[in-house]
Computed example of a mutant assay.
Amino acid sequence: MKFLKVFFAFLASVSSFATGQVPDYLIIEKDTLAIQSNPLEGYFKDHPIPEKLITNLSSANWRGYVAYFKFIDGKFVVENIYKEDYKENSNGKTDYFLTSIYKDVFGTNVTFECNYYSGLLICPSGKIVQT
């Protein structure tokens, strides 16, 4: 029993050092909402992102991309997908920016439909009560 108490105390301390992940986003009219799911993960299991396309990974984005979704005519589609890039500026600091990789991933398909996705799209709102 003492082992379990120590083990759970260890888990609690480790989780406090975890980095929150950059979300994907859902665009609804003029609102852009963070979603707590990654709808493209299932697609990428069968259709991997082209090798060497994702060049930078951060502890806040293990998947290497940020996707934006929207509904068009009742269909759930990818609006755009970006990779994270970093560049040192003239002050020696690192600038972060997003570069679209839509054409590299989906080719000329201008409205890639996520018809394979059947999960929830949870968009949390309100103030954070625990960090």
Score class of each variant (00 low, 15 high):
35 I>V: 11
35 I>M: 00
35 I>A: 01
35 I>D: 01
37 S>M: 08
39 P>Y: 07
39 P>Q: 09
39 P>V: 03
40 L>S: 12
41 E>T: 15
41 E>N: 14
41 E>F: 13
41 E>C: 13
42 G>S: 15
45 K>L: 13
46 D>Y: 12
46 D>S: 15
46 D>V: 13
47 H>L: 02
47 H>D: 00
47 H>I: 01
49 I>D: 07
50 P>V: 14
50 P>W: 12
51 E>N: 14
52 K>F: 10
54 I>N: 09
55 T>C: 07
55 T>H: 13
56 N>V: 11
57 L>M: 03
61 N>A: 10
61 N>H: 10
62 W>G: 06
63 R>S: 12
64 G>K: 09
64 G>C: 07
65 Y>L: 07
67 A>T: 01
68 Y>Q: 12
69 F>W: 08
70 K>P: 07
70 K>T: 09
70 K>Y: 02
71 F>S: 10
73 D>F: 10
74 G>N: 08
75 K>V: 01
78 V>S: 00
78 V>E: 02
78 V>D: 05
79 E>P: 10
79 E>N: 09
82 Y>K: 13
82 Y>Q: 01
83 K>Q: 04
83 K>C: 03
83 K>E: 05
84 E>I: 15
84 E>D: 10
86 Y>C: 02
86 Y>K: 15
89 N>R: 04
90 S>Q: 12
91 N>T: 03
92 G>Y: 11
93 K>H: 02
94 T>E: 00
95 D>M: 00
96 Y>K: 14
98 L>V: 09
98 L>H: 07
98 L>N: 05
99 T>E: 02
99 T>P: 02
102 Y>N: 08
103 K>Q: 04
104 D>H: 06
104 D>R: 04
107 G>W: 09
107 G>N: 02
111 T>V: 12
111 T>N: 14
112 F>Y: 07
112 F>K: 06
112 F>V: 06
112 F>M: 08
113 E>Q: 12
114 C>E: 08
115 N>I: 03
117 Y>D: 04
118 S>L: 01
118 S>I: 07
120 L>W: 11
122 I>D: 07
122 I>Y: 01
123 C>G: 00
128 I>Y: 03
129 V>A: 01
130 Q>V: 08
131 T>Q: 13
131 T>M: 14
